[in-house]
Write a protein that binds this DNA or RNA. Structure first.
Lengths: 218, 218
DNA sequence: TTTTTGATGTCAAAACATTAAAATAATGTC
DNA sequence: GACATTATTTTAATGTTTTGACATCAAAAA
């Protein structure tokens, strides 16, 4: 198995591979060729083969990929065989929506607890998750060592909270705040979700359509 | 001004440029150099200059970029000066969280209405938005011609809903369902948000950290 | 004015990613 | 058991994105 650095575009495609293979697996499919995957995913077959070969030789020439094995390997790569734990900081609307609806388990994360500073929220439940007082965050991290923290606090508290997490040795932050967390150079992984960015990208494409139409008619 | 096709990586960076310039603008900053932007954004100054020059010459040699002008231009590029309207399909937890919390206006979208099929939800309000009966969707689109639809319906209804939107001539879908909408080749822009993909990417990086530590210790 | 400094826009080289082609290996069939 | 087929891996070529270097021009200073 090669262990070079894997490029970003490849990493970004991994979850899509996983989803696709998951579907095949649960539909009882036993083997699949890169050509079939290509059709389903919209990437070229060549690219799919190359991507997979970054991680090792999963396929069998003349046969294709064994779906079960392929699934296992991708799960391994994505870290789904490791037991990850999570906490969530900030039980506002977004935080609660995630706790109630998002399937953390399907991504390999067990949600340990949520934190908030609002006394009205502390010691209540959101779904199966208990909301704890933010003052206990530091000690909790020290004793429970969650692998990851979901950051859904208001912007103004984001950097401070992030600092606490980094200091306490949390390995990664799933950041929904979209602001600068001031963690440059620190040993912590930050994965950002920025809905506004996504919608602005959509807006850009709409604008392009608009211009395109003008060009065609004028 | 060049009007070639703009590459994806550049488009993906635009919202980050916008956010950064927005901050500068509101902090009263009058001019800014590519070097300063570089520091703030983590891209190379060279890349920033090159990206901007895709759209025209916004800067002044020996001076830098006038923040107000730069902001105006980026807003123009992103379509923020056009008036966009939106509808939302599927008022489950995620849909409601978006309606209540997400600042559509800041991205240039005015939310016209939401739709659901659940009779208990129909004709109620979520924040300032009225929930309408899904049966009226088609006619509503025809009369109000929203530029965009937010798709937060359950997976099993996603493809059907998407088909209706495309048939009715909606220009774009902001898709939270993460499943195949079957819109290949149709004249509609789809911008996907997939939280699971994002979290799996984080999981991948965590796994890499883990492997890295083993390597160092073993 | 004239000089110096600062910063852009552009070009070319390097790095990187994708696609295509060639070589190889396993399967299934006659 | 040999052969045609399938589909991977490896290697090469092509295309794209990023980076670095530089000529150019505007502003500030002398």
């Amino acid at each position: 198995m090669k262990r070079d650095r894997i490029s970003n575009p490849v990493v970004a495609r991994l979850p899509r591979y996983y989803r696709c293979v998951e579907e095949l697996y649960y539909s009882g499919c036993v083997r699949v060729s890169s050509a079939t995957l290509s059709e389903r995913l919209g990437f070229t077959a060549s690219q799919i083969r190359q991507d997979f070969s970054n991680f090792g030789e999963f396929g069998l020439q003349g046969y294709g990929y064994n779906v079960k094995k392929l699934r296992y390997e991708i799960r391994e790569i994505l870290g789904l065989h490791s037991r990850n734990t999570a906490i969530l900081l900030g039980c506002g609307n977004l935080g609660q929506a995630l706790l109630k609806n998002f399937d953390f388990e399907a991504c390999g994360f067990f949600m340990l607890a949520a934190f908030d500073t609002d006394p009205d929220k502390v010691d209540t439940q959101v779904g199966p998750v208990h909301i704890m007082d933010g003052r206990h965050l530091k000690r909790f991290i020290e004793t429970e060592t969650p692998s990851m923290a979901v950051l859904t606090v208001p912007r103004e508290n984001a950097a401070e909270a992030a600092g606490v997490l980094a200091d306490a040795g949390v390995g990664a932050i799933w950041d929904f705040t979209g602001c600068d967390l001031g963690l440059e150079g620190r040993d912590i992984t930050v994965e950002r979700v920025n809905l506004a960015d996504s919608l602005l990208t959509l807006s850009y494409h709409l604008e392009r359509r608009r211009v395109g139409e003008e060009d065609r008619s004028g």
